[in-house]
Design a protein around this nucleic acid. Sequence first.
DNA 1: TCTGTGACTAACC
DNA 2: CGGTTAGCCACAG
Length: 110
Amino acid sequence: METSGNFFEKVYEVAKQIPFGRVTSYGAIAKYLGAAKSARMVGWAMNASHNNADIPAHRVVNRNGLLTGKFHFDGTNLMQQLLENEGIVVKENQIQNFQNVFWDPFKELL
DNA sequence: TCTGTGACTAACC
DNA sequence: CGGTTAGCCACAG
């Protein structure tokens, strides 16, 4: 029941709202949900997002714009491929011009 | 209930 | 600049 899955659900809601060609960080989502100290939980939710095909997990990176979760995708560079497909420049698993493509839920959703 | 773990982050060495 | 430590919290066993 919604005894604990509510947190994941919120993460999914935010993740789904990430616009095309934009990315955000785990901490940003966590803070938006009121759990800034639970950035790991956001990542954990992404891990569970395998059951949710509507979750663009590739648009969620760490606060450095580094594709820390790329190894969780099927291909070794699938995550990067998806981001580049959206016009995002990625080099060495790191998003270039990160702040330019960064999508802040506080500024966009709030 | 306790323990281990993790797609984080910051601080420290 | 890279490795370690610590805090954080939710989930699985």
